[in-house]
């Protein structure tokens, strides 16, 4: 198993007025290919800061970060942009779809910033990604014609379209009801089975059970890194339905 993400003694310090705030106080871990990791922690634990660094949106104050073997810490802004474009797929809590733009065009968006991909390839890849998330019959729909769960699926397709080495999900089920959350988790599990590496930031323990490893953060330190026996979101969903029927 290759190392997709490797961080060593990662620190991030913010200057707030004259005070230094240590958001991450030297953390290290490795995520291997094929893992489905949940990163948990209360607000203020540093998980957003960690996610920003993992997503190449921010640079650590000190420490090393390797994504897919590439060192990130000393990269320029433009190089970080390219890394985000080629290696990372983001899924956000609030979907962040462009309004008045079809699902297909929303999914195509990351490829527009990649010069090596032709217009025809772009379309094919976007269609494939939408098929992967089960929205092949909704390609021309606008975001406001889709349900929350469907919008999140479009966002996942957008994250998948550039074939990233890792999917970074930031509270991706936070805006959804329980049932739809389970559906989305089931989709993530399916993608994980197909070989995608996923890091899922959440504060809900009942969502973390659908992953196979949990990293607990508190006050900028890792306080727990435990393997989890992954529950199948699909089964939970079916059981739930049975319970309602009975």
């Amino acid at each position: 198993m290759s190392e997709i993400i490797k961080i060593e003694q990662l620190r991030r310090t913010f200057q707030v007025g004259s005070e230094e705030v240590h958001a991450l106080k030297g953390i290290s871990f490795t995520i291997h290919s094929g893992e489905f990791v949940s990163i948990m922690g209360a607000s203020g634990s540093g998980k957003s800061t960690l996610l920003n660094i993992l997503g190449c949106l921010d640079r650590p104050t000190s420490g090393e970060y390797f994504i897919d073997g590439t060192a990130v810490s000393q990269r320029t802004k433009d190089e970080l942009s390219t890394l985000r474009n080629r290696k990372i797929g983001f899924v956000f809590q609030s979907y962040n779809l462009l309004p008045r733009t079809s699902a297909l065009e929303n999914v195509e968006l990351p490829l527009l910033y990649n010069n090596t991909i032709s217009g025809k390839e772009r379309r094919t890849k976007a269609i494939t990604a939408l098929e992967q998330v089960g929205l092949h019959d909704r390609m021309m729909h606008l975001p406001n014609q889709l349900s929350g769960g469907q919008q999140q699926r479009v966002a996942i397709a957008r994250a998948l379209v550039n074939d990233p080495v890792i999917l970074l999900a930031d509270e991706a089920t936070g805006n959804l009801d329980t049932r739809t959350s389970y559906e989305i988790m089931s989709l993530f599990q399916q993608l994980n089975r197909e070989g995608k590496t996923i890091a899922f930031v959440t504060h809900e323990p009942d969502i973390a059970v659908f992953t196979n490893r949990t990293i607990q953060l508190r006050d900028g330190h890792i306080v727990g890194d435990t393997p989890v026996v992954m529950q199948s979101a699909k089964e939970v969903l079916n059981n739930e339905e049975l319970r309602i029927e009975n």
């Binding site: 949106l57 802004k77 433009d78 942009s81 390219t82 962040n96 462009l98 968006l109 910033y113 550039n162």
Partner: peptide, 12 residues
């Protein structure tokens, strides 16, 4: 923000 997160450079 979204465009930047999916790979748009400042120049773009």
């Amino acid at each position: 923000g979204l465009r930047m997160s999916i790979g748009a450079k400042n120049k773009d």
